[in-house]
Simulated scan of single mutants.
Amino acid sequence: MTAELFGIDIAQGGAVALLAIVVVMVLTGRLVPRRTYDDLLEERNTWRTAHTVSEEARRLEREQVGELLELSRTADRVLTALPHPAHREEVEAHDPMEAAP
């Protein structure tokens, strides 16, 4: 009494069934050659390193933008606090195009 699977004697079809399973796994992408796996692993590590470097650069950029924003706020407050000229109305009324020949 030999076990049958779908009407096929397992003992007789063992090597053929194993080969068929391996071929199906390769064709469906569940079984890949070691070289392909190593290439994919190396590519993944390369992208991971690139992402880490990129994120570090973005962090430094955010810090620098924060510092520049604070400096611009300080400069705005200083310029706003400066006294206005006494003859401001005369300066605004003067049109520089009128003086041109």
Rank of each mutant, 00 (worst) to 15 (best):
E4C: 02
E4M: 06
F6S: 02
F6R: 04
F6W: 03
G7P: 00
I8E: 11
I8M: 11
I8Y: 12
I8A: 13
D9A: 03
I10C: 10
I10P: 00
I10F: 02
I10H: 06
A11N: 14
A11S: 14
A11V: 07
Q12L: 11
Q12K: 15
Q12S: 13
Q12H: 10
G13Q: 13
G14D: 13
A15M: 15
A15Y: 10
A15L: 14
V16G: 01
A17Y: 04
L18F: 11
L19H: 03
A20L: 08
V22C: 04
V22I: 08
V22K: 04
V23T: 14
M25T: 02
V26M: 09
L27I: 12
G29E: 10
G29K: 08
G29F: 06
L31D: 01
L31N: 00
L31E: 05
V32S: 11
P33G: 07
P33T: 06
R34E: 10
R35Q: 15
R35Y: 03
Y37N: 01
Y37P: 03
D38P: 02
D38Y: 01
D38W: 01
L40R: 15
L40P: 02
L40M: 14
L41I: 10
E42F: 11
E42I: 12
R44K: 15
R44M: 14
N45T: 08
T46Q: 12
W47H: 08
R48G: 00
A50F: 08
H51C: 10
T52H: 08
V53G: 04
V53S: 07
S54C: 08
S54Q: 10
E55N: 13
E56V: 10
A57H: 03
A57S: 03
A57T: 02
A57D: 04
R59L: 03
L60M: 13
E61K: 14
E61Y: 10
R62W: 07
R62K: 06
R62D: 14
E63A: 09
Q64D: 13
Q64W: 02
V65G: 01
G66H: 07
G66E: 12
E67S: 04
E67M: 11
E67R: 12
L69C: 05
L69D: 05
E70K: 13
L71G: 02
S72I: 06
S72W: 00
R73N: 10
R73V: 08
T74M: 03
A75D: 04
A75P: 00
D76P: 02
R77Q: 09
L79Q: 13
L79T: 09
L79C: 05
T80L: 07
T80S: 08
T80V: 05
L82F: 00
P83D: 09
P83S: 07
P83K: 06
P83R: 12
H84L: 15
H84T: 15
P85L: 09
